[in-house]
Design a protein around this nucleic acid. Structure first.
Length: 991
DNA sequence: CAGTGAGCGAGCTTCCGCTTGACTT
């Protein structure tokens, strides 16, 4: 008998379909995508490791050719599919009928390499008829659609993996940017900015309880006084908290409202109009993923992940249809089932006369599945499942059932009433009031489902606000009058549910990702949850500001919408993937985003400190600045700096709150007085940990770190004074003083320019002169370094042994020549000699060249180019060392001077040096290129970059000098020079 | 954000969309 292998995406779906197909068919699942671009360097096959583009997983120089790898956790499963495929007579790829599904089918085809006929089939609902129909109407893989998916994938990778590193450099490491998350974050930030600018306003009005002659009462609200409309919330300017200019309204304050209330109590009011309008309301569309999450949140209080978890279980057990969908469409089977149930449970009048079809599409919907509904051709009622389903699952099923059934019910019908009244207060004011009511004559679908409410019956009552029968000319009596004060409210923060709604509205993100987007922005520290609200962090402000100012097009709300249009063109064969990606990544005739050149120019331009400084409108003019630093957000006013508490939302930082924080005691604790000097001794928590100071000023007279054995909370005065007595003069040796002091690397001895570490902190107090001299007899670092012997040693025939050592970056392997750090999953304990050899062979690296030591690393990167023009055109590895040594002399002239005499300049020079220094070690390993080597590649640079580079290198001018002539500030120019040099080197190496 | 002497195997962080377990808490 022939065997057909059908492959779908989800195992639960496979199970169902297998039932429908019967004998001769084996149904398997791919479990989602089976291959993807490598996530990180570890996933890149050896063959491609050295490539410049390996990090991206896309060969940006060869038509954005993607490098696909089967992820490690999928390998076993793919192998199984391969085997099954080899045993089948025919294969049907039945993945979802959308862009991603088509791509999965194509990847399956590529990876399984079947030797039997392969067909593609699609269906949008899992019913016997639909499957049968699909089987009878197979098609081929749509390669245009696959191309569109590949373009989408590539764009997301390029965006994410190229822009994220900009954030690492300019904001903080490990941050991320992406087409979806960056827009989501921006939405939160913009809303919060509105809240930060918001100034609330106050207004008063009157709530009148009016009584008819028959004694029926109803509420009416004051709307105008002496013919002038009363101010309400919408009349206020959110930026000033005052009534908008040019608005003709009457604003009541508390006193006026009270006086008017007194004057109106007991007065007669006349009905001047009573209008009644009929209304009908249609039921909501059946659930899709986003609306399910929203209602799960509003009605059940579930977070998006909780809703999805429960839905997944319901789906797997066959209670509901697929839960990740953007289609509101119901299959015929579902419509029949719903209608049958409506008739049976609520009666014919409650049934919609015609079957309802919900055609309204969500933006960018792909509609591969049905709406989310109870499964099967007759729905199980929630009541009948009470014993079968537990907590969350039952409640969610109940919700889905109600929404589905309601969607085939009749419209709700009712009347809305609007009544206007006038009256006169004792003070002579003519007042106008209004009352409105709502009566439901026929609840229709509201019997089953009221949006946003848990209990439809209770909600129905709430929806009714009946008024007594009133007609023009009727007189009523103002029984009681209550003045009410109101404050305007800032726009509400997003919740998980409303953010998903907003994203969906903009066509951003997919049903399968909504929940994880919320996770991502929280994991990256862009948002925290406060109750239901998503509050953006200061980091989110800094990141968003950077992206908005420098990569504005990437965080446009309609960036995705435009992308979708382009992808549609690719899918329809009207456009091609490669030119599309080229425009996005490289740009073409000044068109397209041109991401790579954009980043190259921005790297130098973006001022990290400026980006870290966050504009807080309410602190304008206060001299207080808010900044995100390495240790979190802080405020600064002049020299004063204060951390911002973690739980302070940005919009809560008003001027008063800031002033209070600035004046708050910093947590310093005076532990006593030094009798010798009369100064207080203070225990403090600093950035380098706990310490004590003599004197409470800033800066203090002296300070000293606590030893690890000390506790900041309990440290006695005596101990603090003892710590403050350091450094200690141990004695004089070889004509120089030996001092024992505590430093950033721990306790150490210092003699002239020489130093030795001490083993313990307490030795600072106990070490004697002979002991100290003995230590100075030893070579450096012996005290600490030598103690760490190899953890393990592996012996080999005909090869040097490999040792496992413990280093500051964790365990690593070395054979003296090359080193390799152990990665996650490579346990020290289970490491075999064989595996150790493999690892070292695979990715062992020669340690950094030791030749660079003599002249210090200062400025080597920049200087090497300037000097190299005198050197040989052809450069060997050794030649480069020479170049570097020569080059290093230029800054070396300054270095000793700054070290001995002027302390401050030396300290200030450090950051600049650390920025350029990392480039230096990389150069000799790859053989430094001379200016002559680089010059032919000037074409890769922008005009400005080229002008800068030629001026500095060809003419030997300084960046500081050239920058103004190019209209650049020095900082930017320096950054640009660095980037340009990087690009030139890359180009020259043919990378 | 206090202020101090060196010198050591660096290597990785990150995207969006499809899908489930296999883990631990």
């Amino acid at each position: 008998m022939s065997r057909t292998l059908v492959i779908v995406e989800s195992p639960a779906k496979a199970k169902t379909i297998e039932k429908y197909l019967g004998r001769g068919y084996a149904v398997e699942s791919s479990i989602g995508h089976i291959r993807d671009l490598p996530r990180s360097a570890a996933d890149v096959p050896e063959k491609y490791k050295g490539k410049a583009w390996a990090r991206l997983g896309l060969d940006v120089e060869d038509n954005f050719k993607p490098l696909y790898v089967v992820s490690p956790e999928k390998r076993q499963h793919v192998a199984r599919l391969k085997k099954l495929a080899s045993e089948a007579d025919e294969i049907i790829l039945a993945t979802d009928d959308d862009r991603e599904g088509e791509s999965i089918a194509w990847h399956l085809y590529q990876e399984l390499r079947p030797k039997v006929p392969v067909k593609r089939m699609v269906f949008h609902e899992i019913t016997r008829d639909a499957i049968q129909h699909a089987i009878e109407h197979p098609r081929q893989i749509d390669t245009n659609l696959v191309e569109a998916q590949e373009a989408r994938r590539a764009l997301d990778r390029l965006y994410g993996y190229e822009v994220s590193p900009v954030l690492w450099k300019k904001v903080a490491p490990k941050l991320s940017a992406g087409r979806v998350q960056s827009v989501a974050t921006r939405m939160l930030v913009e809303r919060e900015r509105e809240r930060m600018r918001f100034v609330s306003g106050t207004w008063w009005d009157l709530l009148v309880t009016a009584a008819t002659r028959d004694g029926e009462t109803f509420p009416a609200r004051l709307t105008d006084v002496d013919g002038v409309r009363l101010a309400t919330g919408k009349d206020f300017d959110p930026l000033t908290g005052k009534v908008k200019k040019g608005t003709e309204v009457r604003l009541l304050d508390e006193a006026a409202a009270k006086a008017l209330a007194d004057g109106l109590t007991g007065q007669t009011l006349t009905v001047t109009s009573a209008e009644e309008k009929p209304f009908t309301q249609r039921p909501y569309a059946p659930f899709i993923t986003s609306t399910l999450q929203q209602e799960g949140s509003r009605k059940l209080g579930f977070a998006a992940t909780r809703t999805m978890r429960a839905a997944q279980r319901l789906y797997e057990q066959g209670y509901i249809t697929y839960m990740r969908t953007d289609s509101t469409n119901l299959s015929q089977e579902a419509i029949n089932a719903a209608r049958t149930q409506v008739k049976a449970m609520y009666g014919q009048p409650y049934l919609s006369p015609q079957p309802r079809v919900y055609a309204k599409k969500a933006k960018n919907a792909q509609e591969a599945h049905e709406a989310i509904r109870p499964a099967g051709s007759s729905f199980r009622t929630p009541e009948s499942l009470r014993g079968e389903l537990s907590g969350d699952e039952w409640r969610l099923y109940d919700l889905i059932w109600k929404r589905t059934v309601a969607s085939q019910m009749a419209d709700a019908r009712g009347r809305s009433l609007r009544v206007r009244l006038t009256g006169k207060a004792t003070g002579g004011e003519e007042v106008g009031l209004s009352a409105s009511g709502r009566t439901i004559d026929f609840p229709g679908f509201l019997r089953a489902y009221v949006e946003g409410r848990d209990d439809p019956n209770a909600a129905l009552e709430d929806r009714e606000t009946p008024l007594p029968p009133l007609k023009e000319g009727d007189r009523v009596h103002a029984e009681s009058v209550k003045p009410e004060g109101h404050e305007t409210q800032p726009p509400a923060r997003y919740t998980e549910a409303s953010l998903v709604q907003a994203l969906e509205g903009a066509g951003i993100g997919r049903p399968s990702t909504y929940a994880s987007i919320l996770g991502t922005i929280q994991e990256r520290g862009y948002a925290i949850k406060k109750g239901q609200a998503l509050v953006p962090t200061w980091t989110a402000f800094a990141t968003s500001a950077l992206l908005e100012h420098h990569f504005g097009r990437l965080v446009d709300y309609d960036f995705t919408a435009r992308m979708e249009e382009d992808l549609d063109d690719i899918a329809g064969g009207r456009a091609q993937r490669v030119p599309y990606l080229r425009r996005f990544y490289l740009g073409e005739n000044g068109e397209g985003v041109a991401l790579r050149p954009l980043i190259d120019s921005k790297m130098g331009e973006i001022d990290a400190r400026g980006i870290a400084t966050i504009h807080v409108p309410k602190l304008d003019g206060s001299g207080i600045e808010v900044r995100v630093g390495r240790y979190g957000p802080y405020m600064q006013r002049g020299e004063e700096k204060v951390n911002l508490p973690d739980d302070l939302a940005p919009d809560e930082l008003t001027f008063d709150a800031a002033a209070e924080l600035m004046s708050r005691p910093t947590g310093d604790r005076v532990i006593g007085t030094d009798e010798a000097t009369g100064h207080p001794v203070v225990a403090r928590a600093g950035r380098y940990g706990p310490y004590v100071t003599l004197g409470d000023g800033n800066p203090p007279i002296r300070s000293a770190s606590l030893f690890p054995s000390d506790d900041l909370k309990t440290i006695p005065l005596e101990r603090a004074l003892r710590l403050l007595s350091l450094p200690r003069l141990v004695g004089v040796s070889e004509g120089e003083e030996i001092w024992a002091q505590n430093g950033k690397f721990g306790p150490y001895l210092k003699r002239g320019n020489d130093s030795r570490s001490l083993a313990t902190h307490e030795q600072l107090f106990t070490v004697t002169l002979p002991e100290a001299e003995a230590l100075f007899m030893q070579p450096r670092f012996r005290a600490r370094g030598a103690a760490a012997g190899p953890l393990k040693s592996f012996e080999y025939e005909g090869r040097a042994p490999i040792q496992l050592k413990s280093g500051r970056y964790g365990p690593y392997l070395t054979d003296g020549e090359r080193n390799a750090t152990l990665r996650k999953g490579e346990e020290e304990g289970t490491l075999t000699a064989e595996r150790a050899l493999e690892i070292l062979e695979e990715r062992g690296k020669e340690p950094k060249s030791k030749a660079g030591k003599p002249g210090r690393k200062t400025g080597a990167a920049k200087a090497s180019g300037t000097k190299a023009k005198t050197g040989a055109t052809k450069t060997t590895a050794r030649g480069s060392t020479v170049t570097r040594t020569v080059a290093a002399k230029t800054p070396a002239r300054k270095a000793p001077a700054s070290k001995t005499s002027a302390r401050k300049p030396a300290a200030k020079a450090t950051p600049a040096r650390t920025k350029t220094a990392p480039k230096a070690p990389a150069t000799p390993a790859k053989a430094a290129l001379t200016w002559a080597d680089l010059k032919p590649h000037l074409g890769v640079l922008s005009e400005q970059e080229r002008a800068l580079v030629t001026a500095t290198r060809d003419q030997g001018r300084k960046v500081e000098e050239v920058a103004p002539t190019l209209g650049l500030d020095v900082k930017k120019a320096k950054g640009m020079a660095l980037q340009a040099s990087k690009k030139l080197n890359q180009a020259a190496r043919g990378e």
